[in-house]
């Protein structure tokens, strides 16, 4: 199977503090991986390093995305290449409407890939369809990006962006936290619908088994102190749920 993502011996620091300490991970096309691990282990850091957030310095190792050197690309180029980060804390942007933002994003990606841009009419059709599938009030499309959205609404909004942008690899950082029971089901359905395909992959960062009941992972990894300390199948998450991280964090 061809590799979607290959991370080798990745070391990275923030503010001169080493957070990722030699991390290895391979994700094949069509696979869903989950990363679990205690607070502060470096899960969000991994997602930021992969998406190119300023302030995160890679000191060693490599990350290849569909054969390309991911770390050499600018954040917007990574997105155009098909990488999507669902933020643990989606950012509020006053004065820019959700719809305007989404269309700018979709068209920017198309432009970078040399494709034709979508007209406002075409775009509204796509966005409204995805909003409906996620139970998002169409009025929210007109509101400024994430401003005044509830925690759960922000997470749904991330999923809506994913559905519109149709990425190859989605890194979803605690997309399940803050969701009510129905929203968890709706969001899970949308992850399965958009991403469960032979040419797409997902890296789910989560603390809870309940998301994994809906979006069944092929592999589960435990990230502790900047390294993957254990990997297994879906059953590993159940074991962690029962027994905690125990000796893994010691």
């Amino acid at each position: 199977m061809s590799k979607m993502l290959e991370i080798r011996n990745l070391r990275a620091e923030v503010d001169n503090k080493q957070i990722l300490k030699g991390l290895n991970l391979e994700i094949g096309a069509g696979e869903i991986h989950a990363i679990m691990g205690p607070n502060g282990a470096g899960k969000s850091t991994l997602s930021y390093v992969l998406s190119g957030k300023p302030g995160y310095t890679v000191t060693d190792g490599s990350a290849r995305f569909m054969g390309k050197d991911l770390l050499a690309m600018e954040p917007h180029e990574r997105a155009a290449a098909g990488l999507f980060l669902g933020f643990q804390y989606p950012v509020e942007i006053a004065g820019v409407s959700n719809l305007h933002f989404l269309r700018a994003a979709a068209n920017a990606q198309r432009k970078t890939r040399g494709e034709e841009e979508l007209s406002a009419g075409e775009f509204i059709k796509i966005a409204s369809k995805e909003a409906k599938a996620l139970g998002i009030n169409p009025e929210m499309l007109k509101r400024p990006v994430n401003v005044g959205f509830s925690g759960g609404e922000k997470k749904r909004n991330e999923m809506m962006q994913m559905a519109v942008l149709q990425p190859k690899l989605a890194i979803l950082d605690e997309t399940d936290s803050g969701l009510d029971i129905d929203a968890l089901r709706i969001v899970s359905e949308s992850i399965n619908r958009v991403m469960r395909r032979p040419d797409r992959s997902v890296l789910l960062i989560t603390h809870y088994q309940r998301l994994l009941d809906h979006v069944k992972p092929d592999f589960v990894h435990v990230l502790v102190k900047g390294q993957i300390v254990r990997s297994g199948g879906a059953e590993l998450a159940l074991e962690l749920e029962r027994e905690g991280y125990g000796e893994l964090v010691a």
Binding site: S51, G52, K53, P54, E74, P75, H76, R78, A79, A80, L85, F87, P90, V91, I93, F101, L102, A104, A105, A106, A108, Q109, T112, V145, Q161, L165
Partner: peptide, 8 residues
């Protein structure tokens, strides 16, 4: 960064 992470 949020905008750039979406391809802008």
């Amino acid at each position: 960064f949020y905008l750039e992470s979406r391809g802008i």
